[in-house]
Nucleic acid binder design. Sequence first.
DNA 1: CCGGATGTTCACCT
DNA 2: GAGGTGAACATCCG
Length: 259
Amino acid sequence: MPEILEIEAYRRLAEKVVGRVVSEVQAPDHWYVKGGATPEDLVENLTNRRFTKSRRKGKLLLLDSGGPTLGLRFGMTGRLFVDGKAGIDQLEWGSRRINPAWHRFIIEFKGGGSLVIDDPRRLGGVELNPQEERLGPDAWEIRLPGLRKVLSNSTTALKARLLDQSRIAGLGNLLVDEICWRSSLDPNRPANSLEEKEIKILNRTIRTVLDQLDKRGGSHTGDFFEHRNKGGVCPLDAQPLRRSEAGGRTTWWCPLHQR
DNA sequence: CCGGATGTTCACCT
DNA sequence: GAGGTGAACATCCG
């Protein structure tokens, strides 16, 4: 799932619960509660609280309450439902079935309505007062000086650096492939080998891709997405795409124009 | 049946 | 400390 665009869609959906008061919290899956807290901690800290804001940092969704802040992570297969309505119609690689056993976290509100995380693979989690400072600047808000800093002093592959949430928060595997492809940059290049000219291109491309794919409907709507398969060729120059691994993730790129 | 898929965290190496 | 790897989570799809 979800990368920054999907979490942003969830954030917008979660605005519906701002102003509502929590009547009941169900956290049936102890494993799903992170940060050293227990399901009981969540119940105690959130019951009778009124949510005041729906925020996002990278892939972390945050609901402020005036007291504790609730942090929601969705892993690859987590979906958010508010009042039974989904934030994303169809999650790539997700399940299209609905199974109550996959409802890892449920909040009921006074006066009706609910917020539910459905997560078949249990890769997400909920946390009280997550350490937001562990995340780098948000990818949607980062600017040239911030991006320079992300890439400086590191021989790590460009792609691994862009996926490192502590350096820049929000980009996932699909978005990074799309961004490198549009920027004509080889994802395997050492991060600190980029010239100023290339960093500028990358900086612009990050925002262009996020704005454009957000309007289109998500991380899987990029121009490159449908080609990153076995036998895929570059839609720009028809060159067969290469496949490798970077940062532990499958990477596709065009060996001709991505340098 | 097997392998891989939009993610995060942590242990364990070098 | 930096950086890489593999495991764990559990389901769907080809």
